[in-house]
Amino acid sequence: MDTIIVYVDDAEYARQIIQPLAHQASGQATQWVLVACAPRMTHRISKWVSHSARESWRAKWADKLFAQMLPWVAAEAGSRARVDTVLAKAPLPDLVLQLQQQYGAGAELVDARRPKQENAMGLAPQLQQGQAEPQADAPTAAQPVPVIIKKPSRTWALPGTLAGLFCMMFVAVE
């Protein structure tokens, strides 16, 4: 039985990526593992929302996503397909290792998440969107998993600085 692990955050976008794979695997017994990757919440949200409320929101979000995806995957993949669902709570590199241990190292990984604006600007995504990760590049226990640190964008720094300088000049002139 082939195993395909798919990371999903948007049902419509994921359908476009999964559809060719589903047609290829429609005649075989295939196990699909849909991993819901909920949108990130800022660290500042902890002031206003409790941890249990955040977890509850993630669970509701994942249920809504799976309700959109499960009937479609079952119809596209055929009657011999089995679909499992997972909600990503751990960082994705750790989750990759756990899923490969659970479903076997031969599982095909597909990143069907909608690309973020940072990825469009040239930053390398961790898993290439829409492509299966080759078996030789799959992280093992001996290989360290790369950590990608994203810095917050500073799009308002220049206009704020200029506005501050103009205010200081205005005060100094008077």
Rank of each mutant, 00 (worst) to 15 (best):
R54G: 07
L123A: 10
L34A: 04
W156H: 08
P152L: 01
P152D: 00
K151T: 06
M121C: 07
P39Q: 08
E55I: 02
A53C: 04
M69F: 05
Q135D: 07
A75V: 08
V147G: 00
G78H: 07
A90R: 11
A132Y: 02
A138S: 10
A11P: 09
D9W: 04
A163K: 02
L99A: 02
V147S: 02
I148Y: 03
R80L: 15
H51R: 15
D94N: 09
P144V: 12
P39C: 05
V96T: 12
W156A: 10
V171H: 02
V96M: 13
A81K: 01
I148Q: 09
Y7W: 13
E76L: 13
K89S: 09
Q102V: 05
A53N: 09
G164Y: 06
E174V: 15
L127P: 02
L127H: 10
V86G: 02
R114A: 08
Y103L: 04
M1V: 06
A163N: 01
E108K: 11
A59R: 12
D63P: 03
Q131L: 14
R80A: 15
A36T: 04
D63S: 13
I148A: 09
G164F: 12
E108C: 09
I149L: 08
C37M: 14
A107C: 04
Y13W: 11
A22G: 02
Q126N: 09
D94T: 12
N119A: 14
E118T: 11
V173Y: 07
D137K: 06
A74K: 15
A88M: 05
Y7H: 02
F66Y: 12
W57T: 06
E108D: 07
K64C: 13
F66Q: 11
L65D: 05
Q19T: 15
Q102R: 15
V86Y: 00
L109Y: 07
A138V: 12
Y103W: 11
W48A: 14
D10V: 03
A38L: 04
P139D: 00
L123Y: 15
V171D: 01
G78C: 10
P144E: 09
A14E: 06
P146R: 12
T42G: 14
V33N: 10
A62E: 05
